[in-house]
Design a protein around this nucleic acid. Structure first.
Lengths: 194, 194
DNA sequence: ATGAAAACGGACCCTTGGTCCGCATTCTAT
DNA sequence: ATAGAATGCGGACCAAGGGTCCGTTTTCAT
């Protein structure tokens, strides 16, 4: 009942801020060099607006990240195979990891900003919990696979934003090559030979 | 010839700063909460001394890290098996990873500070290059193992400081359990069954 | 139309990394 | 021992950036 709908200038500004932040993070080289004042300026908005809407810097980054992430999330939760739920673990694990990796490659600046937040570890973010949970369950559904918890962490760690940036951004590994290598590693781990 | 030896108050202060930093990082919960002024105060030294000796914050952390790391480094480079060079890859890979993991567990606050530096990625640090290089070479010396480069990165990523902190520090996974899990993963990856 | 509630914005504050420069300490040469 | 050069010291100082305050403006419901 107390669902008061927000004022329209508020929603407009919120969108403007998200757009500005997205662009700024995508352009600049180190996420640290994007300042809140910059974002506010590009969005054509006062600094306070930005803090009122998102709480603080990490709040803004989280919100932006979550927004960009939504397509993948729904594709995983209710999409068609091989990403969706109606897929046997053996195929879904690599599919999921590939999706995560692609996302990280395409949005590596943003991911870098998120993981480099410093303060709180990336392991407490909801989306990480989601990915890790699904991955762990899938792994444990693979015959002969014991505890999937750590392996899930390890596989996700192979898609860490700064590693992606190092390989793809700095050392110019091609997107396809990196996907292939992660796929190979995944296959090796899933292989039945105890 | 131009090897002018440093003044003794300089070396004393340098040591004091390293000790202070070590203690502060070990005690406080988030590395971000230990400030340069704090370190200087605990070391009983002016702030400028600290910057003169180490350049900047990351310089101090690097120096401290490298110091604590030296025993492991020499154990790897010229120690006895299973860590030293006279070990077949199949045993040396797990040994090396275990050593790295143990170090990260024991010095996780410090490692957290180092990796969370934000500015420059951890992948440019010399010690990372060293570890990755050795690991990659070892992997490629394993029969039937193709390109070890990415796998080396992935294995090291499983020992990332914030993951260690999450598992051991937050979720109270025992040290032995984590070692066992990393060992299991390593074994799985090394297993010959293509 | 109108008044209250919500949002705005930019001046302002505060912490923190990093610098400057006059003073103290140490080393060297005699 | 001592003078003087060189090196190092320290705390006041600066700049940048995250976050807040509050008088003003916009929106919304009646």
């Amino acid at each position: 009942m107390p669902e008061r709908k927000p004022r329209k200038d508020a929603v407009r500004n919120r969108a403007a801020v998200l757009a500005a932040a997205d662009e700024l993070f995508a352009r600049c080289e180190s996420p640290g060099s994007v300042t809140m004042a910059d974002v506010a300026a590009v969005a054509g908005v006062g600094k306070a607006t930005l803090f009122r809407a998102f709480g603080d810097r990490t709040g803004l980054i989280h919100a932006l990240y979550e927004t960009r992430l939504e397509p993948i999330r729904t594709a995983i939760e209710e999409g068609p195979p091989p990403l969706g739920p109606d897929t046997p673990p053996q195929q879904r694990v690599p599919a999921l990891l590939d999706a995560v990796l692609c996302f990280k490659i395409d949005h590596r600046h943003l991911a870098l900003a998120l993981e480099g937040t410093g303060g709180d570890s990336p392991y407490r973010a909801e989306h990480y919990e989601r990915w890790h949970g699904t991955l762990r369950d899938l792994l444990e559904r693979v015959p002969g696979f014991g505890d999937g918890d750590f392996t899930a962490h390890a596989l996700l760690a192979a898609t860490r934003a700064d590693l992606v940036e190092h390989l793809v951004g700095q050392r110019h590994t091609s997107r396809e090559r990196m996907r292939a290598q992660l796929a190979a590693l995944t296959a090796r781990i899933l292989a039945p030979g105890n």
